[in-house]
Design a protein around this nucleic acid. Sequence first.
DNA 1: AAAAAAATTTAGGCAAGACTAACTTTTTTG
DNA 2: CAAAAAAGTTAGTCTTGCCTAAATTTTTTT
Lengths: 249, 249
Amino acid sequence: MTEAVGLSASLEDYLEAIYNIIQEKSAVRAKDIAGRLQVSNASVTGALKALAKRDFLNYAPYDVITLTPKGEKIAREIVRRHQVLKDFFVKVLAIDEDEANKTACKLEHGISPQIVNRLVQFIEFIDVCPLGGDKLIEGFKRHLECGVDRNKCEHCLDMARGLVARSGQVQKIQKKRLLELKVGDRGLIRGIRTKGPLKKRLSEMGLTPGSVVEVERVAPMGDPIEVKVRGYHLSLRKEEAEKIDVEVR
Amino acid sequence: MTEAVGLSASLEDYLEAIYNIIQEKSAVRAKDIAGRLQVSNASVTGALKALAKRDFLNYAPYDVITLTPKGEKIAREIVRRHQVLKDFFVKVLAIDEDEANKTACKLEHGISPQIVNRLVQFIEFIDVCPLGGDKLIEGFKRHLECGVDRNKCEHCLDMARGLVARSGQVQKIQKKRLLELKVGDRGLIRGIRTKGPLKKRLSEMGLTPGSVVEVERVAPMGDPIEVKVRGYHLSLRKEEAEKIDVEVR
DNA sequence: AAAAAAATTTAGGCAAGACTAACTTTTTTG
DNA sequence: CAAAAAAGTTAGTCTTGCCTAAATTTTTTT
């Protein structure tokens, strides 16, 4: 008898807006919903009908709008997803509130309960963990403040150096060429001995001094070499990899 | 002359699929795209036309499909967003690969470059940071393994206790009632002295032993009390808050 | 190389969700 | 309390993006 739960992203937005307006004011007016979602009044009427048909809210033309228990439950879930995402962006990634809210709005649909819960657990865990805590997030923010030119901030460079191997023992930093790294090795880029379009292409991909590069795969003949930098996968020729200086330890 | 960049989520999916198929095979067949995106062949044709019109790919009926430089650039961005999200889910949140991929597919549209970059920086940072590193993620995984009954795992409880205050000094654990906490205080729930529908309602909200609860606001007369648990905001009556035992330090 | 099979495209439909314009109801105001 | 203003609704249209069925082109088989 009960149909599938699937609510479209659009209808979820309406439900969320209605829930939020109820929290702020006592009554919900179609106009407020329209204003909040940047949509015409006519669209609101349509959405209200759709939501009412599915029993998420009580609605009759010109009548007051209230959420049904079912509607309120779902709305809470949506608001929670939004809140969790926003918290993560603000507290962990140090994104400003506005951007965090905007992005949370877009992502809140289609994020599974499992991942929402994991995010909550992770945010709590960072606080809780003896290895983490505020110090971790503070460190991250300091790290971010170094700004664009990571290559000039010794603090950042030190951290990035740490990425290469974290065995716990003190190790010497070695200067190598990217070409010399094996699969799985990571290095900190310190220089690129090339110019012109190739240098530009590498730069655009994030292959710049200060970035961490990881070797993902090497073809049988040692060419091409697949690497990962800043979330990009790219494929380099032997000659190119030879021209990139890295630090490893 | 050049129109807005905005590409719909649907068209982004097609572009991504095409890019991925090109990486795997040499040629792109409409059928492969249809299979990957679980849509009919006719839909693929429509999408190809739309993408060709915007100059993301070279296409003519029955002809081979190739990406234009512009299309390839955008496709790379999309693939990167997907990869970064997936990496975050898998490496940081310890989500299994399948679920991570599915969710990344849904979220990859509408995540701003700033947040993608922050995610990359954060993943790298956790590795790099002397406070974090693999240990942090390992700890998180152990934490997750405790499973549902967090209230029985001393390891988790210890961590959760740490959340209440992390001043660095050793402090005594105090038993209190939620009612006694002030705004901003956090406590670890140890028991709920109530039954029936109220207990059920609280449970559904995540207000259960083992959870961390934070007091967000208290109304002038001390009632209601707004708290946050597991990403949910909820409002408790004085009588309810009195029946919840917490640990603070 | 013709017939059969597979792939692709076209044509025509449908649903969601937005819009504008015109109309109705409610609220406010003189 | 009636007229004006504001709010809400209806009707009709448009776009996106999916579908099925039928037609067309390409590829594979015999």
